[in-house]
Simulated scan of single mutants.
Amino acid sequence: MEAVNQAASAEEERVQCAVRDGVATITLNRPEQLNPLDRLTVAALLALVRRLEEDSSISVVVLRGAGRAFSAGGDLEGYMALYRDRPKFMKFLRDLNHLLEEIERSEKIYIAVVHGHCVAGGLELMLACDIVLAAHEAQIADGHLNFAQLPGAGGSQRLPRTIGPLKAKLLVLTGRAIGGEEAERMGLVSLSVPLAELEAAVDGVLADLKRKSPLGLKGAKYLINTGGLGARDAALELELQYVHHYATTSHDAYEGLAAFKEKRKPDLKGE
């Protein structure tokens, strides 16, 4: 199938999207500036994510950056003007937070492909994704305090929930950067491979996901994300009720068992 290309922002094509075989690839496209998450880029990303959410033919979204970075974070020079306009700055922060919440709550699986710099807002965007594949050569950092800034898009909350408060404070308070291998050991990324193998790793994960029921993927993401927000007993009850409904009402759950019994590949329909 030929890729369908579109620009999510007419202005400078800050964000580009290509769709192929049920996978949308979003590319941050300001490589000379290391793909900053400025106000217009965030607005373009939010609009694009919302459009993709309405397309039931897309089950996976890959996020990546053009050039030598995933994203080096916010546009600090632009912030100087935003800081003088309190309502506009609050709208920017709201849009950025809404973007990350849309990704987390989406029924689609989001994969961040990280190479080069992934800093500050770039890290916050990465943390909202479901799977993170990083090159060994990546440089991942919070970095806000290096310029007397604070994380304002969930970094102070998602980071400690991902790697624990002590490791999170090490990264936030020192601003130090770590490579992909250390990030994997820390539990900050799902998998790290040499840069030369990164595309093969992406293809491998996409192939794995393609063999799964879209309905099952949606349910697993929902249970992991939602269960982690509440008390353990409530989360276990949520899982019990969800799985009971899924197993007794979906085609895919029963078809998976039938395929196992008959030693064949399941005919998954996403329903």
Rank of each mutant, 00 (worst) to 15 (best):
M1I: 02
A8Y: 12
E11W: 05
C17D: 02
R20G: 00
R20N: 10
R20H: 11
D21T: 00
T25D: 08
N29F: 01
N29T: 00
E32T: 04
L37P: 02
T41V: 02
V42F: 06
A44W: 02
L46D: 05
V49C: 13
V49M: 11
S57N: 11
V60D: 10
V62N: 04
V62E: 12
L63Q: 05
R64M: 14
R68H: 08
R68L: 06
G73A: 06
Y83P: 00
Y83F: 12
R84A: 15
P87A: 10
P87C: 08
P87E: 14
L96M: 13
L96K: 07
E107V: 01
K108D: 10
A112L: 05
A112E: 03
C118T: 07
A120W: 01
G122P: 03
A134C: 09
A135Q: 06
E137L: 03
A138Y: 09
G143V: 01
L145K: 15
Q149D: 12
G154T: 07
R161F: 05
K169A: 15
L173S: 15
L173I: 01
T174V: 07
T174E: 11
E181M: 13
G187C: 12
S190G: 11
L198Y: 06
L198D: 10
L206D: 09
L206F: 02
A207H: 11
D208W: 07
L217E: 07
K218S: 08
G219T: 13
G219M: 14
Y222W: 09
L223K: 05
N225P: 00
T226V: 14
G230H: 12
E239K: 07
Q241Y: 01
Y242C: 03
V243I: 15
T248M: 08
T248K: 08
K263Q: 11
R264S: 08
K269S: 10
K269Q: 15
